[in-house]
């Protein structure tokens, strides 16, 4: 039987390692020691690609409107705004659209106009 204190100590050591890895993969943090740099790059791109694909599915109108700009814009947004634990994919898609509007990449009045039409 492992005692409680040993587990909490293990948790702390593990937490540090896992946080360091996610920070490197999602938020351009420094590469943790001992990892293959090339593989870190592969994993980083795979996670980004998956997240981008989900946001595209959840917000097809935004993706369509951005066209070829969707990918570079999303990739820039993603590294600035890594997904927070507990956040939802829909929130991610909404935050990306908002980020695009703030950056002037999407028209800002669109939403309000839709509401007007849809109120009928």
């Amino acid at each position: 039987m492992i005692d409680e204190n040993e587990v909490s100590a293990a948790r702390e050591r593990l937490a540090e390692k896992q946080a360091e890895l996610l920070h490197a993969l999602l938020a351009n943090g420094p590469a943790p020691a001992g990892f293959d740099e090339q593989r870190l790059g592969v994993e980083k791109r795979a996670l980004l690609s998956k997240r981008r694909g989900i946001v595209r599915v959840l917000g097809p109108a935004v993706a369509d409107e951005l066209g070829d700009r969707f990918r570079p814009l999303f990739d820039a947004y993603a590294v600035e705004h890594p997904r927070r634990a507990g956040s939802r994919a829909r929130e991610d898609a909404a935050a990306f659209a908002e980020w695009c509007r703030a950056a002037g990449e999407l028209p800002t009045h669109r939403k309000a106009r839709w509401k007007f039409w849809r109120s009928h």
């Binding site: 989900i54 939802r88 994919a89």
Partner: peptide, 28 residues
Amino acid sequence: CGSSGSSCSSGGSSCGGGGGCGGGGGGD
């Protein structure tokens, strides 16, 4: 598509782009 904030696939959305547990398909 449903999106429930699960995290394997983050969206939990099983539609498109990587619901369930599939990978991101690389750097495409």
